[in-house]
């Protein structure tokens, strides 16, 4: 390659690539020859060569105790939350529960049905994240959750967690990481090329785009889901109509949790 070096010198980028072995052989050879006769380029190369050592010498003191205890507190709270939500609360299982592997025996299914019916009238506390939703008829909720199945102890709290007679809790569709594709498929209408309109228009605003990374939410924003009954996430669809990629982004961190490709 003739006259490869502007102003007779290689750029730091070229020299850095040389050191990293990233240059094509011909360019590598040309530059190596050039270095033989150019003190200045050798100097820059040597600086680049020593740069990792300078970076490695930057020491970071251990985590400050204030940060460590804040972290411990956050994880302890998370642990407590997990303990609180497992086992003792009834769960109104959302729309797609029928497709999930049955974890409940017959009695629990029956209990859950009762719980779901109760949920239509009074609030039932639900594990994980749920929001109150104002107004709306009880019957639509009952229909949507009539196949409620449960978590580990669906029966224990049909009477527990009542939030008040006028207060209906809306559920957010539950998806599992293990069966993400299967769980989100019913939420997306492939023919219409859109998300199925779910109950609870209010919910759609609960996890605003502000909470998500601006650059990740570039597709069609879909409903909220509850991932593994623990983490609220926003579904976003991207890609061409015949092969949509559905991605769940955590409402808490904005991070991508799972994604699935739905092909027609």
């Amino acid at each position: 390659m003739p006259a490869p070096y502007g102003r007779d010198h290689a750029t730091p980028q070229q020299l850095s690539d040389l050191l990293e072995g990233l240059l094509p052989p011909a360019e590598d050879a040309t530059l190596t020859t050039h270095l033989g006769g150019c003190e200045r380029c050798r100097g820059v190369r040597d600086q680049l060569n020593d740069l990792p050592a300078v970076l490695a010498s930057v020491s970071i003191p251990p985590m400050p105790t204030a940060v460590a205890s804040r972290l411990d507190d956050a994880l302890a709270a998370e642990s407590q939350r997990r303990a609180d939500s497992s086992g003792t609360s009834p769960v109104v299982v959302p729309l797609d529960s029928a497709r999930r592997p049955a974890r409940n025996d017959r009695a629990r299914r029956w209990f859950a049905g009762v719980a779901a019916a109760a949920a239509a009238v009074v609030g039932v506390s639900v594990a994980g994240n749920v929001w109150t939703q104002g107004g709306g008829g009880a019957d639509s909720s009952g229909a949507a959750t009539s196949d409620a199945g449960g978590n580990d102890d669906a029966g224990a709290g049909a009477e527990a967690g009542a939030a008040g007679p006028t207060d209906r809790r809306a559920t957010v569709p539950d998806v599992a990481l293990d069966s993400f594709a299967a769980d989100v498929r019913p939420l997306y209408d492939e023919r219409a090329g859109d998300f199925v309109q779910l109950r609870g228009g209010d919910e759609a605003r609960r996890c605003s785009a502000n909470d998500l990374r601006a650059e990740t939410v570039t597709g069609d924003v879909g409903p909220l889901v509850l991932v593994d009954r623990a983490e609220l996430a926003r579904l976003v669809a991207t890609g061409p109509a015949r092969s949509r990629t559905i991605t769940a982004y955590s409402c808490a961190s904005g991070e991508k949790i799972a994604s699935a490709r739905l092909r027609r």
């Binding site: 750029t11 990293e20 990233l22 040597d46």
Partner: peptide, 20 residues
């Protein structure tokens, strides 16, 4: 390539802290 590019960009930014 990210490391290589990063080092090339970092070097002039280090000024007096650059190697040598």
């Amino acid at each position: 390539s990210r490391c290589s590019r990063g080092r090339a960009q970092l070097l002039p930014l280090l000024g007096a802290w650059a190697p040598g």
